[in-house]
């Protein structure tokens, strides 16, 4: 999820506050697919990614495209607006109660050496690595990926050499949203969710992205690991309600020593 956010921010410098809500929509989509079509979320995440790709592309083409040159605060307002619309749509359609998708893997556990591991979480973790790798390969091995990186590096330069920058943005936003959709579906088996979960998901992923360094994919991945480990340890050693305290303290400490984040480039 943070990978998607990093991609969008890195390329377009747009702060996507609707990110968490897009993830929640990915989760509900997984729910609908599981109830109506009996699709396990570990299968349906592909569909969720595709649908969210379209949603992301639509938001980009109809809304974000108009405000790319506007100051950051305008973008934040717009994306908060999109977030509110998405959240309340979810509220209207699915109601306020927490939901959960049942997966065939939900109940399964295995022993790995002395460790007792939840198969669902393990699968999600493995697939997250695969997805991150796939995005990485896409960016570094394909033509379009190269164009996305070029536009992220120097938008004016990309324009000068004739890149259709709007199309590159469309793809980047779509792929960013697709990552989120896939992430939503992949965690829907063990994380209960409700329409209001979007904001906290957005905040968590911003935390991850800032720790990792804005716009860095590897940073987003490492940041995600750090934050989740920090939160789990916090939940065990302090109290579950204090876990955010740990991850945000981590953010403050890291920013004190590395203002651009772990893998961030220094702002010029």
């Amino acid at each position: 999820m943070a990978v998607g956010l990093s991609l969008i921010f890195g390329v377009m410098r747009v702060v996507n506050f609707a990110h968490g809500d897009m993830m929640v929509w990915g989760m509900y989509l997984a729910l609908v697919l599981s109830e109506r079509a009996r699709l396990d979320p570990y299968v349906s995440f592909v569909v969720c990614a595709a649908v969210l790709f379209l949603l992301g592309a639509l938001v980009q083409r109809t809304l974000v495209d108009r405000i790319l040159d506007a100051p950051h605060e305008m973008q934040i307002l717009l994306m908060l607006g999109v977030a509110l619309v998405l959240e309340n749509l979810a509220l209207m359609v699915f109601g306020p109660d927490p939901q959960r998708v049942s997966s065939s893997l939900s109940a399964a556990t295995i022993w790995i050496g002395p460790l007792f591991v939840d198969v669902a979480r393990l699968t999600t973790f493995a697939l997250a690595i695969v997805l991150t790798l796939a995005v990485y390969l896409f960016l570094f091995r394909t033509r379009l990926g190269r164009m996305i990186r070029a536009a992220a590096d120097n938008t004016y330069g990309a324009l000068v050499i004739g890149t259709d920058v709007r199309r590159v943005y469309l793809m980047a936003f779509g792929i960013g949203a697709a990552c989120v959709g896939a992430a939503g579906a992949l965690v829907s088996g063990f994380l209960p969710f409700q329409p209001a979960a979007g904001l906290s998901a957005s905040v968590t992923s911003f935390n991850i992205v800032i720790i990792g360094g804005m716009g860095s994919l590897i940073g987003a991945f490492v940041g995600g690991l750090l934050v989740s480990v920090a939160e789990s340890l916090g939940a065990v050693f302090l109290s579950p309600s204090l876990k955010e305290l740990v991850s945000f303290s981590l953010l403050v400490v890291i920013l004190l020593f590395r203002p651009a984040g772990l893998f961030g480039r220094r702002a010029t």
């Binding site: 190269r146 070029a150 120097n154 330069g157 000068v160 050499i161 890149t163 259709d164 480039r265």
Partner: peptide, 30 residues
């Protein structure tokens, strides 16, 4: 650009985190 005008802008405007080869190839891709 597709009609045949290439522009080497002031300040060069390369893609600094891409390799030289990638920069060159991008000129052709587009």
């Amino acid at each position: 650009v597709a009609r045949g005008i290439a522009h080497v802008p002031e300040g060069r405007q390369l893609f600094p985190t891409l390799t030289v080869l990638e920069n060159l190839e991008l000129g052709a891709t587009v």
